[in-house]
Design a protein around this nucleic acid. Structure first.
Lengths: 174, 174
DNA sequence: CTGTATATTCAGTTTGTACTGAAAGAAACA
DNA sequence: TGTTTCTTTCAGTACAAACTGAATATACAG
């Protein structure tokens, strides 16, 4: 088993912390970081050793990463074990994560807000005010969804290109 | 103390859950939801009663919301207590939160990535590969920062306008 | 079919965050 | 000044999420 270099350790630890701050399990994030930096696929046993976590913990975490679609199992000739590798395209990885967090969190929130606006009894005290606030929040989430849909339609790399253009334009103007 | 209506309860509970999924304390999020829906500023004691949490918990949570800049204390004539109210402009609230999460999480990550690229010893095994991956990740975070900066320069409401335009354009084309 | 290697599940334990209530602190009042 | 009202701090506790290791399941080889 390859020992981690200082830089690898630093990256993996930081990525774990980042994870926790965004509601992603630390070990899950660390495993992802490890696989992302690895030029080869790694079997679960070795992941467990490298990060000093239980084999079973790796199993669960890998499954999570697989459902995100950013890690997959590959097979190595003459080895029965599953070896795991991370997607390497950073933009695509974040796209996948964002897509799914939208589906799991933003969409249900939109639904709840719509439900609240429907359920709101106009007779109850301060219903008008509540409706106003709920509608404003709902509008925001609809706009975010709209923005997301528009982004999604752009072909890969376009965001990056637009970004570069924007920078040039600003430089000319400034 | 005003009891919560069904709709208010639903919104507050959901907002609390949303918070936890994004690394924000449940009570903090619930208090924010309560204040957001409230047409008047509310004293801490009443918040505690309404949400059934300890008075001290409210104190800490309110402070957190104040540092985000989305809740502030106001004073009511003839009442010594602090009454708290939430900002009502949804876009501005999210702008503030995003700005600060960028500062607290994205910026340090960029720093770490730069540090890693500097620290990377070209002599150590697989340094080239590690550098490639770190550089790709760093590039992504630089781009996100760039995108954020460009957004920030747009005057308030422009994003919403662009969004509406985009929708129209697509409708014409489609 | 049996034995071995690997992966997953799950009950129990650990850990870290959130929360409480008591005590201290601060501000207004008399 | 002491008293009252309100707020914050903090040590201890509770709780939920994460983690472990043993047991179980699965897949393969002989």
């Amino acid at each position: 088993m390859a020992e981690l270099t200082g830089v690898q350790k630093q990256y993996i630890l930081h990525w774990g912390e980042m994870g926790t701050r965004w509601g992603i399990n630390r070990t899950v994030a660390q495993i992802h970081a490890l696989l992302y930096l690895s030029p080869r696929a790694i079997p679960a046993e070795e992941i467990a050793e490298t990060l000093s976590v239980a084999r079973s913990n790796v199993s669960t975490s890998i499954r999570e990463l697989e459902t995100w679609g950013i890690v997959r199992a590959v097979h190595v000739l003459g080895d029965r074990r599953e070896h795991y590798e991370s997607m390497k395209d950073v933009w695509e990885m974040f796209r996948l994560v964002i897509e799914q967090r939208k589906r799991r969190e933003i969409d249900p929130t939109r639904e709840i807000l719509r439900q609240c606006l429907t359920d709101l009894d106009p007779k109850e005290l301060g219903a008008d005010y509540t409706r106003e606030r709920l509608a404003a929040m709902a509008g925001f989430f609809e706009a975010v969804t709209e923005l997301y849909d528009q982004m999604k339609r752009l072909p890969t790399g376009t965001v990056r290109k637009l970004l570069r253009m924007g920078t040039k334009v600003r430089k000319k103007a400034g």
